[in-house]
Structures are given as structure tokens and as C-alpha cells.
Design a protein around this nucleic acid. Structure first.
Lengths: 119, 119
DNA sequence: TTAATATATGCGTATTTGTTAAAATGCCAC
DNA sequence: GTGGCATTTTAACAAATACGCATATATTAA
């Protein structure tokens, strides 16, 4: 929307701040990536899945059991989390064990949990 | 889905782990809150808004200018972020200045950014 | 009145989760 | 090996709903 930009340059209250902020901006793909990752966490069941995986690995079947949804649904949730590298998998026989991919995830969940609980 | 639960108790591979994980589970509202908060971050423009607010406060007009969307759209995004206490506002005359509510937000964005960039 | 922001409403689109069924994959008995 | 069973994954489909934005109107302050 170039119209807005034009209008904005006129209307901006503090052009210096605006210029500075614009320079600091990252590539658009980065925000898209951030949004995509946050979106993967923006589901109750997926949040619950991740929470269940803190400190232990679980197979699909047991995750379904803990969270209380069908195995198919769990598998599809896990695919989303896997695609964004939030969880990793380990195959053992016909079982697939899932665990958190790294500490980022636990931190994200922990910080957000803190925010949700106490302002 | 009680049907799944029944089936699950039979099918669970490691009942002890499952029991343990179930006990550790939080109230459902917590996961809903987590999901809601993450959902607020799960939008490119909102992520960009938050990123713009790191280290400085900006008025609605300037945010619109930086991010490149209409002021109305920005205002609506800000309402979402405000509702979830991700940003706070300060009124000065007829201007409304927004800033990050606390360090949680910056941490969330920072950790997620790290994850998006390097695995 | 005008400026700055907020809210209401509507629209078109897109996305979402979950179910069912089928398909891979691996194990085991025989 | 073959057949059968268990575990997980994928595909296709449905319904619902959620989303972001624009337009217009309302609020609040100068």
C-alpha cells in the first residue's frame, strides 16, 4: 500500500524514530518465519503436546493417550511441530519417539507460561 | 473424546510414563492461554510491530509508518497485543504511545528469532 | 473543527482441526 | 519368505471458523 506510505511520511510524528526503526527492520521472510513458528505453538493441543515432552520422550501412541486425542490427530500435530523443528523424532522398531528439539522450545513455553500466569 | 481414552489405556506403550505425564499436566485453561498468546504473535505484521517497539516507544501513526499498513489496521493489531498484555500504552495529549509491556515479550521474540535463524 | 486513535461492521479469503480410510513400515510367528 | 498385526503417516474431505483489512463511524483531546 504505497498510498499509506506516502501519507505516512507526511503524517509521521517523529520522522527520525521512524527512519531508525525502518532501518532496523529485518527481512520480511524473518517475520514470516517468526509468525509461522508462533502459529505452530498457537494451539492448545500442540502446547499440551510440547508440555508433555518436557524432560522425556514419548511415542505417538502415548502422546495421544496423555493429550486425549486420536493418534492420527497427534501425528498431524507432530508433523507441524517437526516441520518447524520444534520436536525431533527417533525411530525404534515400529515406534516413533518424539522429544523437544532443543532448549529454545522449552524456553519459549516457559517464558510464555510465566507471562500467562503472572502478568 | 472418551472413546480415545479408553482405547488409549489399552494401547499405551508405557503406562507409567503416561501416568506421570498426565499428572504433570496443567489446567486446560493454561494451554488455552498459551495458545492465545502465541496466536497474538503468529502474524507477520504484529511480529514486525513488536520488533519495532524493542527499545523505544512509538505512536500509532509512526508504527503504521514503519510497518507499512493503515493506522486502523495497526490499531486493531495493537488492541490484540494489548489485550494479551504484550504491549502497554501511554497517552500524551491525543497521541497514544505504545511500548513493550515487559521483558517477556522481548525474550519470546529473541528466542524465536534465534530458532528461526539457526536451527 | 481538526487531529489522533479506537471501534464497529462487513467481506472475501484462507486456514484450521479432526475424522475416516488407506497406505507405509516394521515386527513376529510359522 | 509369507501373512498378519501393530504403529505411524498420509490423503481426502468436511465443516467451521477465524482472519486481516478496508470503510465508516465514534471517541477524545487540542
Amino acid at each position: 500500500m504505497t498510498a499509506n506510505l506516502d501519507r505516512c511520511e507526511i503524517r509521521s510524528v517523529d520522522p527520525e524514530k521512524v527512519e531508525l526503526a525502518k532501518k532496523r527492520l529485518l527481512d520480511d521472510e524473518v517475520y514470516a518465519g517468526l509468525a509461522e513458528t508462533f502459529a505452530a505453538l498457537a494451539d492448545s493441543n500442540r502446547a499440551k503436546i510440547i508440555y508433555s515432552l518436557i524432560g522425556q520422550e514419548l511415542c505417538v501412541c502415548d502422546i495421544a493417550c496423555v493429550v486425549g486425542v486420536s493418534e492420527s490427530a497427534v501425528s498431524q500435530h507432530l508433523r507441524i511441530l517437526r516441520t518447524l523443528r520444534l520436536v525431533k523424532q527417533r525411530k525404534e522398531g515400529r515406534m516413533m519417539y518424539y522429544s523437544l528439539n532443543d532448549d529454545h522450545i522449552q524456553t519459549l513455553l516457559g517464558v510464555c507460561l510465566e507471562h500467562v500466569r503472572h502478568g
